[in-house]
């Protein structure tokens, strides 16, 4: 079983993260990478986390998704502190025997990440001002739909 969780304040390469899945029993790997995009004229993104709860809830999410989808491996990497435009914010990957479980697992993990994990995003603008991002009702609805 591959179970990899990383909360980090430095950039990461999603390709390298994918390479951590190495097993002859794995038949499918699905992954998702979320990036900082240039929306609302932001120049950077800042992410705050809860030092204890964030790690703990990510571990619980991994355990839950492994059981729910009978996965052979799961990986979650999430950034915190300051991120530049274009940098990866989050990477999730799931490995399974067949593709359906892996693909459904990453959708489930991302929906849970949006509502269950203590992380908070803040938009940073060119003039030095900033704004906390509010939770979207659509994210809550998706999370409750599982």
């Amino acid at each position: 079983m591959i179970r990899y969780i990383s909360l980090q304040n430095c950039p990461f390469d999603p390709g390298e993260e994918l390479c951590k899945f190495r097993s002859e029993s794995i038949g499918a790997i699905a992954s998702f990478t979320g990036l900082v995009r240039s929306e609302n004229e932001i120049v950077a993104l800042s992410i705050e986390h809860h030092p204890v709860m964030t790690q703990k809830t990510l571990e619980q999410l991994c355990d839950m998704v492994i059981t729910r989808y009978h996965l052979l491996g799961v990986s979650i990497t999430h950034r915190y502190e300051l991120l530049k435009l274009g940098e990866p914010i989050v990477f999730v990957a799931a490995a399974s025997v067949h593709r359906k479980a892996a693909m459904e697992a990453i959708v489930y993990m991302m929906d849970r990440l949006k509502t269950d994990i203590p992380l908070w995003k803040k938009e940073i603008f060119a003039d030095g001002t900033s704004r906390w991002i509010e939770q979207k009702q659509s994210d809550v609805d998706r999370s409750f739909s599982w």
Partner: peptide
């Protein structure tokens, strides 16, 4: 006791 707004990760 920790108090915070709804989360916005991912």
């Amino acid at each position: 006791l920790a108090i915070f707004p709804p989360v916005t990760g991912g």
